[in-house]
């Protein structure tokens, strides 16, 4: 029996790397006494799988994980799932919460196979304010490029690779520009980024490229990124919980 969990990852939990989160969830399930199914073989591992990894330093408002649970048949699947989630919730820290869940039908495709869109919200601090019109123009000009190459360096001395990120950026929209305020001058940016077998673009990469392209006086240290949601079914039609998205 498989359960799909919807959870968030806020505040300092944004610094928890993806692999560390995997280990964390496995331990939380053990504390909760949830009998997770395990693979056979020499090194049995818990059958838990995640959606697209969240970069370190990015908060997530709606992230997903699938957990396969051994059922002893005493409870109906719906009741067993409810019990497991209730026990798990008691084992989560304040900044990682289970928001919702669903029971997956047998043979449901994996999260990574169905999630095709990630939405982000960025706050980009500027040393000097910029007019909204100027920022709008910068977005339009950046999007108008046919090809946007970024260089990705890998840890461990592997050769850096170049990637064209333009095809993955579905939408960029200004979400307010401030001249001053609690966080100083800056602007908000909505990003919609596609994910496919061909890869994806990282939100931070898009912001860096945009700011460099438009020669914006931005403060990289103050950049804040939130992944607001993940979607499936093309055109934001389906939530990964297999429910239609509200239009």
């Amino acid at each position: 029996m498989k359960i799909r969990l919807l959870y968030n990852k806020l505040a300092e939990a944004k610094y928890v790397a993806h692999l560390d989160l995997t280990r964390f969830l496995e331990r939380a399930l053990r504390r909760a006494g949830v009998p997770v199914a395990r693979s056979q073989g020499f090194n049995p591992h818990a059958r838990i799988s995640f959606g697209p990894p969240l970069a370190v330093g990015v908060e997530g408002l709606g992230e997903y994980a699938d957990v396969e649970i051994q059922s002893d048949g005493r409870l109906k699947p719906a009741a067993a799932a409810e019990q497991a989630v209730r026990a798990l919730r008691a084992q989560m820290p304040p900044n990682i919460s289970i928001l919702d869940y669903c029971l997956l039908p047998p043979g449901a495709p994996a999260l990574t196979a169905i999630i095709d869109l990630a939405c982000y919200l960025a706050w980009i601090p500027l040393r000097e304010p910029r007019a909204e019109a100027e920022l709008e123009r910068a977005l339009a000009d950046w999007l108008a490029q046919a090809e946007i190459m970024v260089v990705r360096t890998k840890e461990g001395g592997a050769r850096p690779v170049s990637k064209n990120i333009r095809p993955f950026v579905r939408r960029l929209a200004l979400r307010g520009a401030a001249a001053t305020g609690a966080d100083g001058p800056g602007f908000g940016l909505e990003l919609e980024i596609g994910l496919s077998n061909a890869g994806s673009a990282k939100a931070a990469e898009v912001v860096r490229s945009l700011c460099a392209f438009a020669a914006l006086p931005w403060e990289q240290a103050g950049l804040s990124l939130v992944r607001t949601g993940l979607f499936a079914g093309g055109e934001k039609r389906l939530s990964p919980l297999l429910t239609p998205c509200p239009r």
Partner: peptide
């Protein structure tokens, strides 16, 4: 403002189980 630029920022935040 400092943590995004350092290695393994989780070393400095606390908040563990």
């Amino acid at each position: 403002r400092v943590l995004p630029a350092v290695a393994k920022p989780g070393r400095y935040t606390g908040g563990e189980w």
